[in-house]
Amino acid sequence: MNIFRFIADLLHLTSFFILIFKIRKSMNVVGLSYKSKELYLVVFLLRYLDLFLYFVSFYNTIMKILYISLTAYLIYIIRFRRPYCLTYDSQNDSFPHLKFIYPGAALVTLISLDYSNIGLFEICWTYSIWLESLAILPQLHMIQQTKECENITGHYMASLGFYRFFYILNWIYVYYYTEKIQWISTLGGILQTALYSDFLYVYLKSQGRKIEI
């Protein structure tokens, strides 16, 4: 554990609480993509299958359980909890996200380099890395449809975007001291941050004013 990874994890955790705060305060879920949340739930459920395989640390275990449960809770609020779910904008949450869930899974299974002893978990983990890198697309699509996004939604998306950026700093740090590199997570993280970069640029430039896309 180093400071970059710790900041990254806290940013990630913060993004959930910003979102819960936004929904409670505004009493609506306008501008939020349910589909992105659904993808994140698949990501966490697949990646954290290792909760049943081995123990790393209390910190990791608690974070994993929080990521899964907070994502499930937000899905419940956005789609099923009244009155919030009545304001869900399904018209603009129109990204065809299911179209890359299945081809992606097939692709990862096919290009796995280490068939012999990789095991099902390794394939699930790899897939979760790539799926996470794309999971924000429905949310980005949504704010592009509406051409603007509320400040607090912007804070939520920015903390979610900067979290992976700080993981990149963490990987650079780890590589510098140990010369170890995990290519899949590093490349997935770079792709993920790149997809956010446009938004993060606009976010930083807006400096708290209304974010227009």
Binding site: D50, Y54, V56, K64
Partner: peptide, 10 residues
């Protein structure tokens, strides 16, 4: 070995 595949990141 099993530890080779142990993931310590989130």
């Amino acid at each position: 070995s099993k530890s080779k595949y142990k993931k310590d990141e989130l």
